[in-house]
Design a protein around this nucleic acid. Structure first.
Lengths: 347, 347
DNA sequence: ATTAGCACTCACCAGAGCAGAGTGCTAACA
DNA sequence: TGTTAGCACTCTGCTCTGGTGAGTGCTAAT
């Protein structure tokens, strides 16, 4: 069943007002501040209907109304008008975003900070995924008899480093032989293609070519066990504390506890932005119980054609969806430009 | 003027009790819970004296007493008995600290997390300083015509990478000439010895050796402008929210705002641990106004002989100094062991 | 279908009254 | 002279009360 034009107007008015004030909205307020040419009584009746239909809620008997989750959903999907940024706002963003950094992780961290400063909410950015890049070179520096530093670089300027245990009984010479072998084999391959089946193949080949098989294989395995965990960059976590929605310290505590769980956040962001377009998740649609009084707006960012990570803004369900969506859209665009500028493939 | 034995006992009792309960402590409580064989009235008189001398405070007329900053100071310096960890506690710490990581930044981050989990306060760790390590190798990978990836490695397994603008008109060949020159010159030098005077020297030398001076010099400069900013690793920031001392959201907000200022924190830690031993800074002794209701306990950690960073635990002034000091001592020791184990110099 | 009017509900606030914890002072005691 | 019992007093924190105002739901009139 669809809503009458008038009901939509009233729903929109209630939500807009509630987003602004964080207070339950009464019929008089609507009548006064939005010229719908209706008396409070009529608005009351409509609001009563809207409540019955599940779009509004009453925190307590005879209080004003607040939007329900369903209300927000409908607002975001069909009611909200996404306005463009003014030239002034764009200039302002430009000014504080203004990036001189070139390292991808720094860029992303700075973006999180700036985005949270602009929106006044908390920003989560799922770090760029090395998986999408192309293998450039693997290098190895022995540190002592047992350990070596392995550095993996990609065409996009990723540098991953880790320290591995050296297999016993492997001479320096042999070590470099294996490394050279790997470099020959892998050059130009995308990282996520270097799968376990591929590794198996290489093992077989190693068996034929070399006589120190076992050690070489374990070296190979260790070298490629680069962290699959995805880094999440946070910005403006303190902003949560400015929200009147959360004046209860125990509630805040729960949210912060979630924010300290990187794995949880990375899953959240990954699922949210699975479809590679702007996405809004409202309240209990979020799978993490502790933050179901929040909403999350996500988008993805790209390097060339490939999606390499995602951006999320987390605020109370009462957050200013339209404003945040515009800003996230803009920032994502900027980030894409910066990244593609710095890391554009050589020719 | 020094305190009588009895006054000391009473002061200690008040502080111990207040640390436990976070409530103003009255004379009856002391008489009941600590067997000093004194009547409440006598204790009252002594407490009154202690207040006059500045060791105690009364939040309001005829309430119990709470320790003043001076009180805490005296307690930490002369009263507190630092007890050793029990075998059980040590085993427990061992269990959750249990590190398999080898990369220095991961180790430090994990330490911050564990330390905050054990103490239930917030942990700040000033990241290991590359300055103290020894130059191993500089490498350069051209990304495109204008940019190149520079990787600096040290003997201790540090890997710093940055992207630089290539000077125009510098051929790949020339590029590698400069890099080779640098590697020859710098090999084995400690990073903090690579000062600007040293750079000047090298510039002079370059002038004599090569005919593409200008470009080489600018390359040199860019390559060595590695971040001097010190990274601070945080753990357990959410713990602040569990402290009954901070039930006021605006207070909490202020603290969190400070925690988001990395530069501020790194300065704080650096100053606090300047003397290279365990240090306790109480309340207004902290230079940052917003967190003057907190205390900070710091220690330094080492690689070989060299101090490479510092560890701090931040809690309310009412924090359990003795417990935290013991734990920080223990964890610092563990961290030293781990680091020296992983990064011990090759012979 | 809309609206004016009215009784009713509930949160919020201020003030009053009360219990409990704790102090400071005085006077008695060892 | 130091210690202690006793007592009046203070202040917080809690509950209860009544009043106010915002807001509703219902009914009846337009």
């Amino acid at each position: 069943m669809s809503l009458s034009q008038r009901k939509k107007q009233i729903l929109q008015a209630v939500i807009t007002e509630y987003i602004k004030t964080a207070e339950p909205v009464g019929s008089r307020t609507i009548a006064r501040r939005y010229d719908l040419d209706l008396s409070p009584a009529t608005i009351r009746n409509e609001m009563s209907d809207l409540e019955e239909m599940g779009y509004l809620e009453q925190p307590y008997t005879s209080s004003g109304r607040i939007p329900s989750q369903k209300g927000y959903r409908f607002y975001v999907d069909s009611l909200m008008e996404v306005k463009d940024l003014s030239a002034g706002e764009i200039a302002w963003i430009q000014k504080i975003y203004n990036i001189k950094l070139k390292e991808i992780d720094k860029i992303v961290q700075h973006t999180a900070k700036v985005l949270s400063a602009i929106t006044r909410y908390t920003t989560l950015i799922l770090g760029p995924q090395i998986q999408k890049s192309t293998f450039e070179q693997l290098q190895i520096f022995p540190l002592d008899a047992e350990k070596a530093l392995v550095i993996l670089t990609t065409d996009t300027g990723f540098v991953e480093n880790k320290i591995i245990e050296l297999p016993r009984m492997l001479s320096t010479e042999e070590l470099f032989k294996v490394v050279n072998f790997l470099n020959r084999k892998l050059k130009g391959l995308s990282i996520d293609r270097i799968t376990s089946s591929m590794m198996r193949e290489m093992k077989v080949e190693l068996v034929h070519q070399m006589d120190f098989i076992e050690q070489a294989v374990s070296l190979l395995e260790e070298s490629f066990s680069f962290e699959k965990e995805k880094k999440v960059y946070l910005g403006g976590t303190a902003n949560i504390l400015s929200q009147p929605d959360f004046k209860d310290v125990t509630k805040i505590k729960k949210i912060f506890d979630v924010l300290e769980e990187e794995t949880l956040l990375s899953k959240l962001l990954e699922e949210a932005s699975a479809e590679d377009r702007m996405n809004v998740i409202i309240g209990e649609e979020i799978k993490i119980q502790e933050i179901q009084e929040c909403s999350l707006i996500t988008a993805t960012y790209h390097l060339g054609e490939k999606t390499i990570g995602s951006i999320g803004v987390l605020g109370p369900t009462r957050m200013d969806y339209s404003k945040v969506i515009t800003i996230v859209e803009h920032i994502t665009q900027e980030l894409n430009n910066i990244l593609n500028d710095v890391y554009r493939k050589k020719s």
